[in-house]
Design a protein around this nucleic acid. Structure first.
Lengths: 223, 223
DNA sequence: CAGAGTATCGACACGGTGTCGATACTGTCA
DNA sequence: TGACAGTATCGACACCGTGTCGATACTCTG
């Protein structure tokens, strides 16, 4: 990046600079964990000094919070669109929801990983993520309760809410492991299918393959 | 704790002091996250100065690593005993394994939570935990593969290994959430049942409740 | 072109880390 | 018993990242 040709573009306006900080941070997070990133690095990456950084954000965690907001908004939008297009069949619903989540965080894996890191130290990040997870859990619990009413899931000993919580936490952890290439973790090519399989086993339960009420989709669904 | 009656017990021998540090650390971790704990606090808690601390451990992460070793050893021992006592029925196997895990980390929740925190910053902690998880995954994958051979689980599109990975990561995350009282999380009273339900749905799959081959244990197993 | 707001920086104080050299205590062997 | 070796302890120092403050430069608008 040569300094904007000829005359050096000295001052940036506040919004541009803020955007530059966000961009620099996300870019640096591709290669370094949040904890191994100093404010100085982010500031330099955005073309300002460390102390100028504080003019825009009170801490690096605040930067991440901004980044998280954007990504979460995208995830929710994508989910709502996907679910609307999926129709009522729980098989499609589940796959659509998981895919929306997967696609978004795959595109912004740096932010996703940093968010998990930040949650530990920053209450704000923790609360933001809690709200996100809660909305997914509530939605999932609705689907499960519906399956129980319709009769394809026997109202087991565990509550729909708890089941929904466990499944969503599984997604969170499994996708994190995949994106971080943890050991053990699941390959990107298989992760969605694996999650969908478990979700369907858990919420469609005992009914082996026979569709209980919606014959619009084939009972067997390989691939 | 009054200073050992009358004459102050000045010097401790090295092993005692090391034990005191471990104890102080675990005790402090009950109420504070690892990141909000300074070496000075741990050292004072063990009755020495900060610089003396370095005589015993190179960092607070090293202390945690010691703590983790002990707890992990306990978890493995408990698991092996439980599995040996559980017999071949996968229903009992699954519940026994999950309960062993749950019980151990419940008794040492401070260490469990700190371990998760430390994994982010300390490669050693990350590797140690990876090895633990890998051994659980391998064991689980064995059970799943066996179920597939026996025929009660149709060899689905996803590999036994991936299934095992997802289920174990679910346990890790769900139990963490429970012990940390995250939002959302599952109450301690319900968490084992919830996990067992999902595991059985995933690895026993389509077969509703009929015992597949081992009639020595009752198919129903409440409490 | 003056003044209000915007943007930037250097310098400082603070708190946590890790190292080093000095010193005190303890057991043991001559 | 008393000197020496090893063990244990500490204070002082240098370092690094953070956050704040006051000074200054730039820019727009009247």
């Amino acid at each position: 990046m040569p300094a904007t040709r000829g005359r050096r573009a000295k001052r940036m306006n506040g919004d541009d600079r803020e955007a530059a900080i966000l961009e620099a941070a996300e870019q640096l997070l591709e290669t370094h964990g949040l904890h191994e990133l100093s404010i100085d690095q982010i500031a330099r990456g955005a073309g300002i000094s460390r102390s100028s950084f504080y003019f825009y954000f009170p801490s690096k965690e605040a930067v991440l919070l901004s980044l998280m907001d954007r990504v979460i908004g995208q995830a929710n939008a994508r989910r709502d669109a996907a679910l609307a297009a999926a129709g009522p069949d729980p098989r499609n619903l589940v796959r659509a929801g998981i895919t929306a989540f997967y696609d978004t965080f795959r595109e912004h894996r740096a932010v996703a990983l940093a968010a998990a890191e930040s949650r530990i130290t920053t209450p704000e990040a923790s609360e933001l993520w809690s709200r996100v997870m809660d909305s997914w859990v509530a939605m999932t619990a609705g689907v499960i309760a519906h399956q129980q009413e319709v009769g394809s899931l026997p109202p087991s000993a565990v509550s729909a809410r708890d089941l929904a919580t466990a499944l969503n936490l599984m997604n969170e952890r499994v996708l994190h492991a995949t994106f971080a290439q943890d050991t053990p973790s699941i390959d990107e090519s298989a992760v969605v299918d694996t999650l969908v399989t478990i979700w369907l086993a858990a919420i469609l339960g005992p009914s082996p393959s026979g569709p209980s009420q919606d014959p619009t989709t084939p009972p067997e669904r390989p691939r």
